[in-house]
Simulated assay, not measured.
Amino acid sequence: MTAASPSPAARALMPAIRAACLEAGQLALDLFRPGAQTAARTWSKAGGSPVTEADIGVDTFLHVRLAALLPEAGWLSEETADDRLRLSRRLVWVVDPIDGTRAYMAGSPDWAVCVALLDEGKPVLGVVHSPACDASYEALAGGGATRNGTAIRASAISDLARARLAGPKPMLDALARQQPFVAVDKIPSLALRLTRIADASIDAGLVSPDSRDWDLAAADLVLSEAGGRLSTADGGAVQYNRPTPVHGTLLAAAPGLVSPLQEAVQALRGTPGTG
């Protein structure tokens, strides 16, 4: 957890953000079908990734609600055309209306509504609300992290061989060829992959290249406030609100696993045939 106290402005906003995320989650739940295909209309965006009417509905709802709270803030969302005006704004909302759209479409509960507020490019408020999992994660910079209102901390494990790791199967398979660990089932939502490290459900995770700010910002704050860390493969800090909000390989881990995981991945990258 960061040493500074949360800003009064961010703390004052949290009840309204919590309420907006709960309402947004209910909008998505109305078209969600556990264990079955969604009732929502679906189509493919440019590039082939799927989208549903629930994604668009939640995005529109949150855009209206959050803009009313902070009219001066910029906006960055998976389902809204990028407005580069955000680059000149101190405050920026970063939103993923449904992180894990494919899971949502297939009836898996592993999807979430994600909202973060950036201040000078750093997350200061984050909510990851997963209504189908009955889990709401919240964090304020300097104020700790919670799951359903209860404080959470990442695990104290420091032995990578005993650590529970989640991530894309090709990355886990490559790592397993040189480093033992306990692989866990795929978590379709990247945000939930990070928050489950934050609440010690798992211990670490790998993130393949091409994740976006909206996949990460809210969950990154939850993880850091729970004592864990999200970093680049070489240990650098994750940067937000850049002209192109796309990231390379990232590592997420409980505090005792940050260095061991980084060393293992760096060794892997130096192995012939692994890139």
Score class of each variant (00 low, 15 high):
M1T: 10
M1N: 01
M1Q: 02
S5E: 14
P6W: 09
P6R: 11
S7E: 10
A9K: 12
A10H: 06
P15H: 12
I17W: 01
A20C: 10
L22I: 05
R33P: 00
A36K: 13
A39C: 03
R41I: 00
R41M: 00
S44E: 09
A46V: 00
A46C: 00
G47H: 07
T52G: 00
T52W: 00
A54L: 05
D55L: 01
T60D: 10
R65S: 12
R65W: 04
L66A: 04
A67I: 00
A68S: 14
L69K: 10
L69R: 10
L70W: 07
G74P: 03
L76Y: 02
T80F: 01
D83K: 02
L85T: 11
L87P: 05
L87A: 08
S88Q: 15
R89G: 03
R89K: 15
L91A: 13
V94Y: 04
V94E: 04
P97D: 00
D99V: 06
R102E: 09
G107D: 02
W111K: 11
A116P: 08
E120W: 01
E120N: 13
G121K: 07
G126Y: 02
V127Q: 04
V128T: 06
S130A: 15
C133Q: 14
C133W: 00
D134E: 15
S136K: 02
Y137Q: 03
Y137K: 10
Y137I: 03
Y137H: 11
E138W: 09
A145K: 09
G149R: 09
T150E: 14
A151K: 12
I152E: 03
I152N: 04
A154K: 03
I157F: 00
I157Y: 00
R164L: 10
A166T: 07
K169L: 12
P170Q: 12
L172D: 09
L172E: 08
D173R: 14
D173H: 09
A176S: 15
F181M: 06
V182S: 08
V182R: 13
A183C: 03
V184K: 06
V184I: 13
D185V: 07
K186R: 12
L190H: 08
A191Y: 03
L192R: 14
L192N: 15
D199N: 01
S201C: 01
S201D: 12
I202E: 04
A204K: 12
V207Y: 03
V207G: 10
P209G: 06
D210K: 11
D213H: 08
D213G: 06
D215K: 08
L216P: 04
D220Q: 15
L221I: 11
L223V: 15
S224N: 13
A226P: 08
A226E: 06
T232Y: 07
A233I: 11
A233S: 14
D234S: 10
A237K: 12
A237R: 15
Q239S: 13
P243E: 13
P245Q: 13
L250M: 15
L250N: 11
A252Q: 04
A254S: 15
P255K: 08
G256D: 05
V258A: 13
L261N: 10
A264Q: 05
V265C: 04
V265F: 12
G273L: 08
G275K: 11
